[in-house]
């Protein structure tokens, strides 16, 4: 049966302060391994509010595209979560860390991660993107070119100087250096 009337999508409500009860199990299945495998990257950073204070009750979801997607059917490997998807919650210092498959990058426009930001105080999740700082295709990325030049750096994760595959990226919800978020 299908009902072909056009329907209006349901309204969003905040995850609130207690989302760990229902959502953290999935984050906990993917701790950052001591050696991050080839094909994956490690991203670390903080979530900060208007006053530069850490946000200890935020949750981020990273998506690196369909090509990195892997179905899980109970017989499959370790944990049931597609390699191109990661959920992570911030700790009491507002810090997060994750390891995720590199973007599928079938085309130049896919050389990034989509990031969804949830927190107490966010009535609707925010959508951002993060680009890897040593990715040469960033210079010609159509979305980065749409972003005002003085704000582009907020979407770029800095490559660690010592550890290959490690990148640093902060999410600033408001104020100086506010991260670029997208309309949806």
């Amino acid at each position: 049966m299908s009902d072909n009337s056009v329907r209006i999508p349901a309204s969003s409500q905040t995850v609130g302060p207690y989302f760990r009860i229902g959502l953290e199990y999935l984050a906990n299945r993917n701790p950052v391994p001591s050696i991050v495998p080839a094909g994956m990257v490690e991203i670390r950073g903080r979530v900060l509010d208007r006053d530069g204070l850490p946000v200890p009750d935020a949750m981020l979801e990273f998506w690196s595209g369909a090509r990195a997607r892997r179905l899980f059917d109970g017989n499959d490997a370790e944990n049931g979560i597609p390699e191109g998807f990661r959920r992570v919650a911030t700790d009491e210092k507002g810090e997060f860390a994750l390891a995720i498959a590199r973007p599928a990058a079938e085309t130049a426009s896919d050389a990034h991660f989509m990031v969804l930001v949830f927190a107490r105080g966010l009535l609707r999740h925010l959508i951002s993107r993060v680009y890897l700082g040593d990715e040469v295709r960033n210079d010609s990325d159509a979305v980065l070119l749409r972003v005002p030049p003085d704000r582009r750096a907020t979407l770029i994760a800095r490559a660690d100087e010592k550890q290959p595959g490690l990148y640093w990226w902060d999410v600033v919800l408001q104020g100086t250096n506010e991260t670029v978020f997208f309309a949806w």
């Binding site: 905040t14 509010d49 208007r50 006053d51 204070l53 946000v55 998506w63 690196s64 595209g65 369909a66 973007p103 599928a104 079938e106 085309t107 426009s109 896919d110 990034h112 989509m114 927190a119 107490r120 105080g121 966010l122 009535l123 925010l126 959508i127 159509a142 979305v143 749409r146 972003v147 704000r151 919800l173 408001q174 104020g175 506010e178 991260t179 670029v180 978020f181 997208f182 309309a183 949806w184």
Partner: peptide, 19 residues
Amino acid sequence: STIARSPRMPLVLLPRTQM
């Protein structure tokens, strides 16, 4: 809680891509 945690800069329009 929205006061210090909601963005104030304009949201940027996003093209549709495969991702």
